[in-house]
Design a binder for these strands. Structure first.
Lengths: 120, 120
DNA sequence: CAGTATCCTGTTGGATACTG
DNA sequence: CAGTATCCAACAGGATACTG
């Protein structure tokens, strides 16, 4: 992953952070894992409409590699794998929560803009 | 850009936000523009080591389209174009500042980890 | 100065099918 | 259940050269 994070080379801290959560589903995965308990692969899958197993696996592996998520395999049949947010992952909570709130507000604003368009 | 923001379709607010600042240099551009005054194209260029004019233009156009940055062309020779953060852009300040602080801390942590590696 | 115009490559992410 | 294995398309992003 040293070369995955090409952005860190010049060394702007903002880049470092944003690059780590860059990926089609990483933010949302973190968001769901921050909600409380740990989640199984299939539970995450259900919460992310449209993601393919391949992609979900990749995003989770990346997050694991970067230390934001831990992966626990239970030796059972059928297999059970649980994903849990780590301390390091938790430290990103303010960012994710801000993104949640801000995004919600923007969606409302966009909605409103559309509505007033229709009247005008 | 409606299709640039493919992530907004399912509608998770976290995705909406992160998608808007997704792009190799957008976060850093916002960061620099939040520093105070407006900046000219060449000034931004100097602050972003390695970016090509083409990319800088694209990132700025995206940010402009999304309402985070305003672009002012002064009718002079040689031309002077100034980029300034908008109100909407300002509303992202908490996120950018968090990313700055958090990224700085992580860089320090990584440094420390490397150092202890060399000792061990 | 502030960009365009071309061209090109690598990575990201999606579709589909299969397995321990 | 929790993934892999292949294959593939699209696009972001980089290199280079040129211009009003």
């Amino acid at each position: 992953m040293a070369d995955r994070h090409y952005r860190t080379i010049p060394g702007c801290p903002v880049e470092v952070t944003l690059d780590l959560i860059d990926g089609r589903w990483k933010g949302v995965v973190l968001h769901h894992l921050m909600a409380g308990q740990c989640l199984r692969f299939s539970e995450l899958h259900r919460r992310l409409p449209g993601i393919t197993p391949r992609l979900l696996t990749k995003q989770l592996r990346d997050l694991e590699t970067d230390g934001f998520v831990s992966r626990t395999v239970h030796a059972e049949v059928p297999p059970r794998v649980e994903y849990r947010i780590t301390e390091e992952g938790e430290s990103l909570r303010p960012l994710i929560e801000f993104a949640e709130t801000w995004g919600r507000a923007r969606m409302a604003r966009v909605q409103a803009a559309h509505a007033s368009q229709r009247v005008a």
